Simulated assay, not measured.
Amino acid sequence: MFRRTPLPPPPPPEHLCDWPDRESMLADRVLAMAELRRRSLTVAGLLLLWSLGLVAGVGWVLVSLGLGHFEDRSADYLTGLVELILGVIVLVPAMIGAGFSVARDRAVRDRIDAWAELGPDPENDHRLRAGARSAVWLGLSVVLCVTGLGLALTGGGQPDSAGVGEVAYLVGIGVIALVIGVLGAVRAVGHQRWAEHVLSPVQPRGRGGAHR
């Protein structure tokens, strides 16, 4: 059975620390923070978040079709009821999965903060910034937010002749896309702010070469 690799543990309490010297502590700190940073902004993580949004969208399409059947008096109400039930069955797990994704991201951030509090390590901390990766996350998430907002506004602006199912479809899909985009943007911005305030500042390179 497939199991997700557990996160690196937080550093031990101060009274249980048994590092012989600072170099040993920093070596463990580098390994733990590098692994936690790798788990934070991965391509797989972005695809997983978007996949959850896609599954939620499929569920909402079924819900919208069900609402459309109930609006049409000549339609088969049993089919509409089945579509509503199937939509909820698909939609709820996707929402729960998104909640777990947010909780896991929070756990990663808490553990990487705990390791960072052990002390600065300017020589290695600059590798954890992941500026390009967070920029990609932020850019794609903003595009998704704009798309979702546009769909939601389009659905809300439908004429009175539009059916409830059609309006619910556009508004619901737009809101789902907007929420997924916001979650991705929050993670990217949070990482950038964390890197700016927690990690050791990047050491400026000396002009004319380093002295040996």
Rank of each mutant, 00 (worst) to 15 (best):
P6Y: 04
P9D: 06
P10V: 05
P11K: 00
P12D: 07
C17K: 07
C17F: 04
W19K: 01
P20K: 05
R22F: 08
S24W: 11
S24C: 13
S24K: 07
L26S: 02
L26V: 05
A27P: 00
L31W: 04
A32V: 01
M33C: 06
A34H: 03
A34D: 12
E35H: 11
E35L: 14
R39A: 11
L41Y: 02
V43N: 08
V43R: 12
G45P: 05
L46T: 02
L47M: 11
L48G: 10
L49H: 09
L49K: 03
W50E: 10
W50S: 09
W50A: 13
L54V: 15
L54P: 05
L54W: 12
A56L: 12
A56Q: 12
G57S: 15
V58P: 01
G59L: 11
W60P: 02
L62A: 11
V63M: 14
G66W: 05
L67K: 10
D72K: 08
R73M: 09
A75L: 06
T79C: 03
T79W: 07
T79L: 13
L81E: 11
L84Q: 05
G87H: 11
G87I: 12
V88H: 06
I89R: 09
I89A: 15
I89D: 03
L91V: 08
L91I: 06
L91R: 00
V92D: 07
V92E: 08
G97K: 04
A98Y: 03
A98E: 04
G99K: 03
G99S: 05
F100R: 15
F100S: 12
A103V: 14
R104D: 11
A107Y: 00
R111D: 08
R111V: 13
A114H: 00
A114N: 01
W115L: 04
D121W: 02
D121F: 00
N124T: 04
H126Q: 02
R129H: 09
G131S: 14
G131E: 15
R133N: 05
S134K: 07
A135G: 11
A135E: 12
G139L: 15
S141Y: 07
V142Q: 10
V142Y: 11
V143Q: 05
L144S: 12
C145D: 03
T147S: 15
G148H: 10
L151H: 03
P159A: 12
D160F: 14
G165A: 09
V167E: 12
V167M: 15
Y169C: 12
Y169L: 15
L170Q: 04
V171G: 08
G172E: 09
I173M: 13
V175S: 06
I176E: 10
L178D: 09
L178E: 10
L178V: 02
V179G: 05
I180P: 00
G181M: 10
G181I: 08
G181Q: 13
V182I: 15
V182G: 05
V186K: 09
R187D: 02
R187F: 10
E196S: 13
H197P: 01
H197L: 09
V198L: 09
L199K: 02
S200V: 06
P201A: 11
V202Q: 09
P204M: 10
P204G: 06
R205H: 08
R207M: 05
A210C: 00
H211I: 00
